[in-house]
Amino acid sequence: MTAATELRAKQDQGRKAAQNREKWASVRTYVSAAVILVWCLAPAYWMVVTAFRDVGYTYDTSLLPTHVTLDNFITAFDTSFGNRFGQALLNSVFIGVTVTLISLVLGVFAAYALARLNFRFKYLVLGFILGASMFPGVALITPLFQLFTNIGWIGTYQALIIPNISFVLPLTVYTMTSFFREMPWELEEAARVDGCTQGQAFRKVIMPLAAPAIFTTAILAFISSWNEFLIASQLSNDATQPVTVAIANFAGAQPQQIPYTAIMAAGTIVTIPLVILVLVFQRKIVAGLTAGAVK
């Protein structure tokens, strides 16, 4: 055996070992990915399976759908046990849309200023808004409960909308600020060179470009308002309660028996639109979620 062939054999061996290592690494990656998938999806899957399972088989633990029925969805909307899920859905949509619109209108101006303009106290303002977004809701609930009791607002829509703005608006501002920073602002300069005023440049050039960012922010704002529970649980009543409160208080025919199948059906109804929305706009949502933290 010459030295050259020996060397080649060694190289071959080395290459094979490397290939093997790579193969194993990729197998490990796939196994890990499968574990993540199961961990994230299994509980949600269980919710949907239970939602479609006959109430008599609530505790059936077969993993595949069995005793499939739509009855639970009818039960979810049934009002005879004092549940008002249908009304609650409308309430949540109304509260969520109102909060989102108010926050977007106010937030878009603030984010423009924070992303584009130079002024004193900019970092103080940013710090204030970030601080506000992390502000504990429980610190608001007591004074607002007393104030709204005094002026007779407990159980009104405004009593639910106003506190939600306290955490949705900061979220809107800082998500949009980081989106705005990424935009091609040279186009605004170009429009101004072409004779647009700053306002026109903003409306005609920047707004259409910013639309996806604004839309993503709107989804994030809507989801955080839709998921709110603490404040709504204290300040709403039967007529104005949002879905989170309705689902938490869901009552069955027997007070000691929790109507799990109906609750899972209600949970599925509440969740599916959000999940579809999130999956469709996945990329943008992830960008929006992580915007404040890493940009």
Binding site: L37, C40, A44, F229, T244, I247, V270, T271, V278, Q282
Partner: peptide, 18 residues
């Protein structure tokens, strides 16, 4: 990456009942 968004998107009140 899409699947990890599912638990995040489910409202906490629903998560608790689930």
């Amino acid at each position: 990456r899409a699947a990890v968004l599912v638990p995040w998107a489910i409202p906490t009140a629903v998560t608790a009942q689930l």
